[in-house]
Design a protein around this nucleic acid. Sequence first.
DNA 1: TTTTAAGTTGTAATCATTACAAAAATAGTG
DNA 2: CACTATTTTTGTAATGATTACAACTTAAAA
Lengths: 140, 140
Amino acid sequence: MMQNDAVLKSHGIKPSLTRMMILDYLKAAKKHPNVDEIYQALQPKIPTLSKTTVYNTLHLFTEKNVARAVMLKDQENRYDLASHPHAHFQCVKCNEVFDVFRLPDVQLDGVLPGAQVQDVSVLISGVCEACQAKEGTRHE
Amino acid sequence: MMQNDAVLKSHGIKPSLTRMMILDYLKAAKKHPNVDEIYQALQPKIPTLSKTTVYNTLHLFTEKNVARAVMLKDQENRYDLASHPHAHFQCVKCNEVFDVFRLPDVQLDGVLPGAQVQDVSVLISGVCEACQAKEGTRHE
DNA sequence: TTTTAAGTTGTAATCATTACAAAAATAGTG
DNA sequence: CACTATTTTTGTAATGATTACAACTTAAAA
Ligand SMILES: [Mn+2]
Ligand SMILES: [Mn+2]
Ligand SMILES: [Zn+2]
Ligand SMILES: [Zn+2]
């Protein structure tokens, strides 16, 4: 796998230590961390870390297509590596977010004549398997 | 077309004057107003209107499936009638939001085994026709 | 070194949303 | 009608994520 500094350089980002560690965290995180989670996780390792830097870095990553903001019903932004585009499923009961790698087939032909499509984001909501099980037992 | 009070009653909402006027505004608005736009528009007609009431009403509408929150890259919620489900296109240049009524065909079969899908929201981003024209002339 | 730019930090401000309790309006009961 | 309970609306204060901004630090350039 490509090293973090190479990833950043290939996107035109100077690979500072802080930026590489944030990229590292995004790679390792299974979930979709918000700014505060990233800050809390890295602050012990980078004692001088500022939350503003986390914001700055994520804005930079998003602009340079290293990461992307995942928009959910939460009021805070969550982040995701931009490497493999995919959809998201959010459970309305437990609020957990699942990646949907088997991308739904979105047919865009003629959907908006004249528009130049850059990106399609799909958010599916419903009840996850675990929460259905809980609901099921409760009423039997 | 169904009257506002009938619409609200059919969704289990008591049709107060304020609620009907907010529903009215949502019906008339071509765009996707945020809370403040709704408040500013109705405050002259309802001098005692409180922004909290707008929030309360939109929450109620959303819960009872009269309206739905449209999640965009903006940091504020925008609202939409829930009557005809559709996708949205937001221009990255001018930020304008367009309805996409010719729904993209989203194939969900086997996308998340076990999950019970309730809703799919699709947000397309790109450059609208008007902004492409502007860009084109600028560089010729 | 000296100078310039890039990266990082801390604090204050902004702004949408929520919490909450009081006030007003409405509905129900006798 | 009078009385009470419930619903609806209001105003203000708190919350919390994000941004603005200027200072500080580090790295690069000259
Ligand atoms: Mn994801
Ligand atoms: Mn719409
Ligand atoms: Zn769940
Ligand atoms: Zn545009």
